[in-house]
Design a binder for these strands. Structure first.
Length: 221
DNA sequence: GCGACAG
DNA sequence: ATCTTGTCGC
């Protein structure tokens, strides 16, 4: 239907922004916000993109949940095809991400995506799109808010729903990692896993922190 | 109409 | 995200 080839991103051949918005609304209904694991979680992957001139440099890093050791790192580069538009982030980053994930040879159980999941105006951020496209369990982790309000208990509400959680930095009280469901996982489990894979005095989970660093190394060569 | 707005 | 000097804080 919208995607016959999991790791190929084409937005179901949508061409206009209005059509991509319509796709997001359709996909939002397919997001599964409960845990459905068929195996225990041993490793977690993070994927991030950086830019230089007209090239997107994307890196994915798989890290062992227990000892934080790097299991595998891959990178790829591709031409930027679309502009960055708030709430339509999938236009710019989904293709580089899907292409890079194809390069991984080791397995992992959870994917961390550098952007929001259901904490999105149409409940369909980048992490949801990637999750549905690949059928992977995904969690959205963003460094700033696109919508919603942080409550005193750190949960983030939007449109009368609790859609996310602000994992505040120990050091910078201003900074936080905004966690939300991407696909096939619950919010409580998402929070638990992100906390578990985040080092002390850091607010970005290790797989994303290393992927971010690696992608920036790639674009400076 | 105006402002806000993941990376 | 990226471009960028000095500057604030641990």
């Amino acid at each position: 239907m919208y995607n016959t080839n999991p790791y190929e991103s084409n937005y179901g051949n949508r061409t206009s922004y209005a059509e991509v918005i319509k796709l997001q609304k359709e996909l939002a209904k397919k997001v599964i916000s409960r845990d459905c694991f068929d195996s225990s979680i041993r490793s977690i992957c993070g994927v991030d993109v950086s830019y230089k001139n007209n090239i997107a440099y994307c890196s994915a890093v798989i890290i062992d949940k227990e000892n934080f050791k790097i299991i595998e790192m891959v990178s790829s580069e591709s031409k930027i095809k679309n502009p960055y538009i708030p709430s339509l982030f999938i236009l710019r980053e989904s293709e580089p991400i899907l292409q890079t994930l194809k390069l991984l040879t080791k397995s992992f159980q959870i994917l961390l995506v550098d952007g929001h999941g259901v904490l999105h105006p149409r409940r369909c951020g980048l992490a949801c799109y990637v999750g549905i496209s690949t059928n992977l369990h995904t969690i959205g982790v963003a460094k700033s808010l696109l919508c919603g309000n942080v409550q005193s208990n750190n949960f983030v509400n939007h449109d009368g729903e609790t859609l996310g959680y602000a994992l505040k930095s120990t050091n910078n009280l201003k900074k936080a990692a905004y966690i939300s469901v991407g696909h096939k996982i619950s919010l409580p489990t998402s929070i638990e896993l992100v906390k578990m894979i985040t080092k002390t005095n850091q607010f970005v989970p290790e797989p994303l922190r290393v992927a971010d660093k690696l992608s920036k190394e790639q674009n400076s060569k």
